[in-house]
Design a protein around this nucleic acid. Sequence first.
DNA 1: CACAGTTGGAGAATGATTCTCCTTTACGAA
DNA 2: TTCGTAAAGGAGAATCATTCTCCAACTGTG
Lengths: 152, 152
Amino acid sequence: MPTAGTQIETMVTAFRERCRASGLALTHQRELIYRAIVSSKHHPSPELIFDEVRRQTPSISLATVYKNIHTFLEAGLLREVSPHHGSLRLEANLAEHHHLVCTRCKAIVDLDESELEPIHLSRKLRAGYQILRYTVEFQGLCPACTDALKTT
Amino acid sequence: MPTAGTQIETMVTAFRERCRASGLALTHQRELIYRAIVSSKHHPSPELIFDEVRRQTPSISLATVYKNIHTFLEAGLLREVSPHHGSLRLEANLAEHHHLVCTRCKAIVDLDESELEPIHLSRKLRAGYQILRYTVEFQGLCPACTDALKTT
DNA sequence: CACAGTTGGAGAATGATTCTCCTTTACGAA
DNA sequence: TTCGTAAAGGAGAATCATTCTCCAACTGTG
């Protein structure tokens, strides 16, 4: 069975290949940033990644971390945990319901609980966790953005 | 069948009662803010709410909108769409998986696709939408935060 | 109607993110 | 291996979202 260490190396190797394939220069900083994210068990913020990377290369700039995160997101090497961070989004609908989020225009449409069957967990979820509620987020393209991409 | 208009009035009436019950003063601004959120089909940001409310009361301050949003969230009158906005959170794990989010400390734990049964939509989802993927977000308290709240 | 405690307004302060501008580096070609 | 060019990095200013501070105005009670 592979250890966590070799698994990280596998991902870093794949990362190098994907950079080459995408025409992205393979810089020291880029590899450190990617490695910091892959090695993290949590889902780190740019600031945390910066703190981690700075331990090995104190001269790195926070702007470089941000720039590369966006580069990696565009290249599909990373994923954002939330499709709508950046600004607080609110709702007054307190009934159980789910969301359909357009990844392009960030519009959010509600889906009633009755529109999907209840979720069943195969096993007891993580010991010690108290689950209060769950929400399903469907990500995709809304009709307008589907059209817009076709035309372009 | 109730029209959208009367439904909004119903919610505003309930809002007034809940304010009274929670000891919150019923100000002109509060009602406008709540009404703007309830009336919105989308899931508005504070800035959008401000723009809307300002049309009726140009003297309102953006800080007031923010303050009241937080007041309403604490009173349970509103809900945040995303439990982890505020800072970009990233992951390199591109496999289908889900998230367990602690609402108190914002820690995110991955849940493998195999840990829950697939979701079935009862009907064809919204015409015209292209669904690319879905993620289930379980919200609750992690073991550490559960303990912390017991002790307090 | 007056009082006391909330709440609102304005603008400064803070934190996250992006931009600008100039220097340095990666990497294909010679 | 060296060179030239385009891509990338660093520093700090600029911008955007959000929060705070401080004082004036308002709500709800007596």
